[in-house]
C-alpha cells in the first residue's frame, strides 16, 4: 500500500479506488461486453429446464423431419399388407399397423416433415407480411397506418380455420404443403403486425430515436437500425407460438379432409383415417395424436420461456 502512495501528487485527497475495498465491488471492466436484452435473456434461459426440454424436443422432431431414415428403415407407404390391418405391435413394428396395414411408427416419423415444413413456411410468410405491415403502419403512421390496420382487421376477423377451409375448398385441385401454408399464413399475419405495430409505437417515443433524428440519421436507417431491433422481442415470442398453431391448423384441416391429399404423409391425415376405428383400435389414432401434441407442446413451451426471458413483466408473475 505504501508503495502505491509514494510519489503521488498532494492534490489527491480521495483514496484511489484500487486502494479501497470498493475496488472489488465496483470494478467496471471496460473489456466486458455490455449487457443487453438478448444477453440477459440467454442468462435467464440457460438455467431453465423447460427451455432445454423444449429445445431438445424440437431438435428431435426436426431431425426426424430432415432425416427420417435415421429413425426407421420401414417405408411408410409401400410394404403395407392388408393381412396386418389394424394389427398390434410386432417385432420391428413397435406401434402396430394402420387399417391399411402400414407401419404406424414409420408413418409417424415420416409425417414429421409435413408438420415442421408447414410450421416454418407459415412462420416465414407471417413474419415477412407482419414485419412489412407492422413497421409501415407503426413507424410511418398516417393514412397508410389506417389502411393497413383496417386490412389487417378484415383478415383478423375471419376465424382462421374457417378462412383456411374456404381457401382450401377453392384450391382443392392444388393441395400441397405450400398451398396449405399459404392458406394459413394469409390469415395469421395480422397478429404479428399488430404486436409489432404497438411495440414500434412504444419504441418510437424513446430518447434514442429522438437522438438519432437529431443527428440527422435517415428515417429508414432509424427504423432498421434502432427501432426494429428494439421491438422485435415480442414478435419472436408470438412467432414461436404461431408456429405451434400453424401445425395444429394443418392437422385440423387435414383432419377435416380439406388439408393435404391423403397420399401425403401427415399426422392429421392419419388421425382422420383412424377415427372410424376408435372403438376397436384406438392406438392407431392415439400414437399420431401423441406425436402431434408433443411437437405443438415443444413450440408452445419454447414460446412461453422466451416470453418470460424477454419480458421482465412476465418474469414477475413466475
Amino acid at each position: 500500500m505504501s508503495s502505491n502512495t509514494e510519489g503521488r501528487k498532494p492534490t489527491h485527497f480521495v483514496a484511489p479506488p484500487e486502494d479501497t475495498p470498493l475496488a472489488e465491488i465496483d470494478t467496471v471492466s471496460i473489456d466486458e461486453k455490455p449487457s443487453n436484452l438478448w444477453r440477459d435473456a440467454w442468462r435467464d434461459l440457460r438455467v431453465r429446464p423447460m427451455f432445454w426440454i423444449s429445445a431438445a424436443l424440437i431438435l428431435l422432431v426436426s431431425t426426424a423431419a430432415l432425416f427420417p431414415y435415421l429413425f426407421t428403415l420401414t417405408p411408410p407407404n409401400s410394404e403395407c399388407f392388408l393381412s396386418n390391418s389394424n394389427g398390434g405391435p410386432t417385432d420391428g413394428h413397435p406401434l402396430g399397423f394402420t387399417k391399411l396395414g402400414c407401419d404406424v411408427y414409420s408413418r409417424i416419423i415420416h409425417g414429421a416433415s409435413t408438420s415442421i415444413s408447414v410450421g416454418f413456411i407459415v412462420v416465414f410468410i407471417t413474419t415477412v407480411l407482419g414485419l412489412l405491415a407492422g413497421s409501415i403502419s407503426g413507424f410511418y403512421g398516417g393514412w397508410l397506418d389506417a389502411v393497413i390496420s383496417r386490412i389487417g382487421d378484415i383478415f383478423f376477423s375471419i376465424p382462421y380455420i374457417l378462412a383456411a377451409v374456404v381457401v382450401m375448398s377453392v384450391l382443392s385441385a392444388y393441395r400441397s404443403v405450400w398451398v396449405i401454408s399459404l392458406a394459413i399464413g394469409l390469415f395469421a399475419w395480422p397478429v404479428v403486425a399488430r404486436v409489432l405495430r404497438s411495440e414500434i409505437l412504444r419504441v418510437k417515443a424513446s430518447d434514442f430515436v429522438t437522438a438519432a433524428e437529431a443527428l440527422g440519421v435517415s428515417r429508414f436507417k432509424i427504423l432498421v437500425q434502432h427501432v426494429l431491433p428494439n421491438s422485435i422481442a415480442p414478435v419472436i415470442v408470438i412467432t414461436t407460438i404461431s408456429l405451434a398453431s400453424a401445425i395444429v391448423a394443418e392437422a385440423t384441416l387435414s383432419f377435416l379432409g380439406v388439408g393435404l391429399p391423403s397420399t401425403t404423409m401427415s399426422w392429421g391425415n392419419d388421425i382422420s383415417a383412424a377415427q372410424v376405428d376408435l372403438r376397436t383400435n384406438p392406438q392407431t389414432l392415439i400414437y399420431p395424436s401423441i406425436a402431434l401434441s408433443i411437437t405443438v407442446f415443444a413450440f408452445i413451451m419454447l414460446g412461453e420461456v422466451l416470453r418470460d426471458a424477454l419480458d421482465p413483466k412476465a418474469r414477475a408473475l413466475r
Partner: peptide
C-alpha cells in the same frame, strides 16, 4: 393448462370420447 393448449381440439375430443364414452 400448458398441456391443454398443446392438445389440438380433435385430439381432446377423441380422448374424451374414448375415456368417458367408451
Amino acid at each position: 393448462s400448458l398441456l391443454l393448449i398443446s392438445l389440438p381440439i380433435f385430439v381432446i375430443a377423441f380422448l374424451a370420447q374414448y375415456v368417458f364414452g367408451i
